[in-house]
Computed example of a mutant assay.
Amino acid sequence: MALSVDRVVGGLLFDRDDTLIIDVPYNADPHRVVPVPGARRAVERARAAGLPVGVVTNQSVIARGGATRAEVDATNARVDELVGPFDVWCVCPHGPEDDCPCRKPRPGLVLEASERLGVPVAVLVVIGDIGADVGAAAAAGAQAILVPTPRTRREEIDAAETVADTIEEAVALALQRVATTRP
């Protein structure tokens, strides 16, 4: 499967947990951050190609009272240090019951990242590990690449237009659209 051949790629947005770092449920401890294999190389490759990069992440641990925003920000700073740097971080602090516009699969985080990066949403690609990441991209008008993990449901994989085996493969797919569309 491949990205749409009629759209360029102008920036990459990554999910955090199980995409950039190994998921530790509700993690707000910077010392527990471990990058997914290949994540740093993938982000470096995107940056070297001149693409702006950002992170869009649901962090309901804040709404649940398991961590403060400052603790989540410190954890994100550690991700930035180990995998980034990222040009923008967009975090949804709400829980599923809050009915907010930013929690993936809603488009709010992707739209916010687009605005903050100054990159049209139509040329952004969201790379994530679950259907909510793909759904947020679609709802915002961006493209998506699903990188499944053992936790990804089969129906999410089947529904995704573009699937990659690794984060490095996902970035390579996106870079093909950059290389073939730039003058």
Rank of each mutant, 00 (worst) to 15 (best):
V5T: 06
R7W: 15
R7K: 11
V8I: 13
V8W: 09
V9Q: 15
L12H: 07
F14E: 14
F14G: 03
R16S: 02
R16Y: 03
D17Y: 06
D18Y: 05
I22C: 04
I22M: 06
D23I: 01
D23Y: 06
A28F: 05
P35C: 02
G38P: 13
A39S: 13
A39Q: 08
E44A: 10
A48L: 10
A49M: 05
A49P: 15
A49Q: 03
G50E: 07
G50Q: 04
L51H: 03
V55H: 00
V56N: 03
T57C: 01
T57D: 00
N58M: 00
V61C: 15
I62G: 07
G65F: 09
G66R: 06
A67P: 07
T68V: 01
A70E: 14
D73S: 11
T75E: 12
N76A: 13
R78A: 01
R78S: 05
D80F: 00
V83I: 15
V83M: 00
P85F: 06
F86C: 00
D87A: 09
V88F: 03
V91P: 02
P93G: 10
G95F: 08
P96E: 12
C100E: 08
R103D: 12
P107R: 09
G108E: 06
V110M: 07
E112F: 04
E112K: 15
V119Q: 10
P120Y: 06
V121K: 08
A122K: 15
L124V: 10
D129R: 00
D129Q: 07
I130C: 14
I130V: 12
G131H: 05
A132Q: 11
G135F: 00
Q143C: 05
A144P: 02
I145D: 09
T149Y: 13
P150K: 14
P150W: 04
R151F: 12
R153V: 15
R154T: 12
E155P: 04
D158G: 13
A159E: 12
A160S: 08
E161V: 09
E161K: 15
A164M: 14
I167M: 13
A170S: 14
A172F: 04
L173C: 10
A179R: 15
T180G: 11
T181I: 01
R182S: 13
